[in-house]
Write a protein that binds this DNA or RNA. Structure first.
Lengths: 177, 177
DNA sequence: AATTTATGTCAACATAGCTGACATATTCGA
DNA sequence: TCGAATATGTCAGCTATGTTGACATAAATT
């Protein structure tokens, strides 16, 4: 039924020329990023399907393992999702024994999040294929090429976010946010 | 209620050491990719919110503009989603006048997809901030650095996908898939 | 004429995001 | 010390976007 009407829309100003590089836009990198990221997350996705978890769980497990003891607020800030959204997956991860909560030593309102051994194993299992993929993609590159990749990716990140990401080796204890 | 039980799970083997670079895993790039991609799609997301569309629409509009006349089957293959999933957003885009369908000249079962001027404008508007972000991230890099970035991103893509992405300038007419 | 192909469509479901409202425990400031 | 602010949890419902399975139609192929 929608068939007959759609056949010859000659009035609709149809364009048949590809949107190309005449517009000064770097479509190549845009598409490379799309495909690269899609395949990049397909590796952990396959593992997660087995465990009954999803990408949301992946992110939580990852960051809790990267910064044991981080607060719920800090995690929310990193993930940029709502607490209701986090609550769902976090509860499952705690109930399944991948993550444990401990009341904050100073501020006992806080629930600091720690990985269990099980949680650590999962995080590592998820990171491994991604690391392999990265290593493969870096294969042909020299130190300067690798540095360029890091500089590029850093430059893609918003300043506010970048602040947190750059300080990945700092504890930043004392002012969570 | 879940409060009392969660405070002191000393039996649970809690880990307080960050999952670090002792495991031979490149967590830095993993996180850079996560943040970079998140911010990368936040630009078009903001525009799409205005139009009442979402990321799914973005992808469809993008690829139809990049390869006008592509078939539904080819688009499904690029996006790697089901036809039912595509149908929803495609219908909206057609109804709103962003994309037009034309029966295939040779095989009239095909619905070849073309952008309208409106669709082209939307695709460009969505690509522009992404291109700016990329240009900014590339700023400090020389030609070799830029080449390294492209090589890296290409290397991150699965071979099957990479085939299609590499041929982006080919018409590939005659064997859609 | 029968089958395969390209596409569309209906129905039901899952994941993961969202808003809004409200509860509880704890800390902090006046 | 009391009231406000903070950190977190939770209930209820909505949206976007993916999934599977089943079936319909038109056109091409054999």
């Amino acid at each position: 039924m929608s068939r007959a009407g759609a056949i010859k829309p000659e009035s609709d100003h149809i364009l048949d020329r590809p949107m190309g590089d005449t517009d000064g836009i770097d479509f190549e990198i845009i598409e490379l990023l799309f495909f690269a990221y899609r395949d990049f997350i397909s590796d952990p996705d396959a593992i997660l399907d087995t465990s009954g978890f999803g990408r949301a769980h992946h992110r939580v497990v990852h960051f809790v393992n990267r910064e044991p003891g981080l607060t719920v607020a800090a995690l929310l800030d990193t993930l940029k999702i709502t607490k209701q959204s986090l609550a769902r997956v976090l509860k499952q991860l705690i109930d399944s024994g991948y993550i444990a909560q401990v009341a904050g030593p100073e501020d006992r309102r806080q629930r600091r999040l720690y990985p269990t051994e099980r949680g650590r194993e999962l995080a590592l299992a998820l990171a491994r294929p991604q690391s392999c993929r990265i290593a493969h993609a870096m294969e042909g590159l020299g130190d300067d090429g690798r540095a360029a990749v890091k500089a590029f990716l850093s430059g893609m990140i918003n300043p506010a976010t970048r602040g947190a990401a750059d300080d990945q080796d700092d504890a930043m204890e004392g002012h969570e946010r």
